[in-house]
Design a binder for these strands. Structure first.
Lengths: 226, 226
DNA sequence: ACAAAAGTGTTGTTACTACACCCATGG
DNA sequence: CCATGGGTGTAGTAACAACACTTTTGT
């Protein structure tokens, strides 16, 4: 049995952000390419060390601003990863966040240190630096449940969207196909969205009704409960 | 716009644990009494600084062992609290955990520095040191949803228990009353528990069938889904 | 005999699943 | 006129909510 610490941990605190977007009918993550060792050349999550004057949430907002060019998007703390050997340089504990960004709002800043932030399909992002692959997996799982019991979808879609787009988003994130009629019925009954007066024409097919979210702020749906 | 950090944050990492137990038909939390400033005399969560050789999960296990006398109980990372002024002594980021312990397994160690670890009803624990009141609230909220879609109740009940005990636990945690027949029907249909051959007699009333959880490891129930 | 908790079914309502055809448009 | 995605209804089934009385024991 341990009684006294060898010493208190001298850790550095990092903040990493999983930036999800929905683009070309795929769920994508924003990844940068690491320039230095360790894991030079590997794709990695945008992140960095915590500054003295900021909270981790502020650090996440800063990273979102610098690497994705967005502010005020849906952001939530995900998990704190602290395996002792997750960073070969020493003890780094990472407080992770995930964010949802409509692809139209993303401004990938290619200038930054040629880290080349770019979108990668979540299913096909290869092996990432550090434990970032597990972080992305964990975030994707969290996203699945978020979509199921909140209106978080508003954060991944343009302001106005068709029912098909909404359904495809759910199909991609939940990774299974859904019945069109049942999905419409159920989603409309949630009262989260309303039809606009506009329609989307241009396809060589019948124009689609455009919908919008009634409120573009996080709403929790009442849980099924006991 | 910030461009460079004044300096990287020199933070200390703490681990605090919300130890829940179900005792005397109430949901309770384990609290110690702080001996030193800040907040001397105030009740607080058991916790401490992270040691060099351990992960935060190991630190949580250590705290559980030292303050509650238990090992191997249900423990899960809760949230990382990092408001800059949460600790007046300086920048302390706390990675919090919550744990579920059957009251019979708790061994409150009164010897330890007269911190007097003791159980307090969650609804009535007064104002705690630091931001620990918010941490307890957040943990209670998490516990509510855990009970709703996992078998986590096994971690708060003795190995064998009556249906009434189970229902009371749910009523206390969810903070509303449930219909006896509907609760039995639904809970039995989940297949999480099975009747034992024993009954509990002794009350001045009909003896109650004793049940046990089929598996005393975490199980997720399939979500309602879209 | 009585107090106290254990145990048990039915009915109406609501949500879920599965399933197939016509519509409006652009080319 | 045809290819493309948009849009709609119904019927069977399963889950949920509401509700009251009988049983077994100890005192």
């Amino acid at each position: 049995m341990k009684t006294y610490p060898d010493e208190l941990a001298k850790v550095r605190l990092a903040v990493d952000v999983v930036v999800f977007t929905y683009d070309e009918d795929k769920l994508k993550v924003l990844l940068i390419r690491r320039q230095q060792a360790p894991y030079a050349g590997r794709p990695a999550l945008p992140g960095g060390f915590l500054w003295a004057a900021e909270t981790t949430a502020e650090a996440a907002a800063r990273i979102l601003h610098d690497k994705a060019g967005v502010t005020g998007v849906f952001t939530e703390q995900l998990f704190t990863f602290d395996a002792p050997k997750r960073d070969p340089r020493g003890r780094v504990v990472s407080v992770t966040y995930y964010a949802l960004v409509p692809s139209a709002e993303l401004r990938l800043e290619p200038g930054i240190a040629s880290q080349a932030p770019a979108l990668h399909a979540v299913d096909d992002s290869g092996k990432l630096a550090f434990d970032h692959s597990s972080i992305v997996d964990y975030a994707a799982e969290r996203l699945r449940s978020k979509l199921a019991y909140t209106n978080a979808a508003y954060s991944l879609l343009p302001e106005r969207f068709t029912f098909s787009q909404l359904q495809q988003l759910y199909e991609v994130v939940l990774d299974r196909s859904l019945d069109k009629r049942n999905f419409r019925k159920k989603y409309l009954s949630l009262g989260l969205i309303e039809p606009t007066k506009e329609q989307l024409s241009g396809g060589r097919h019948r124009p689609a009704q455009l919908y919008r979210f009634v409120t573009r702020r996080p709403i929790e749906l009442p849980a099924p409960a006991f």
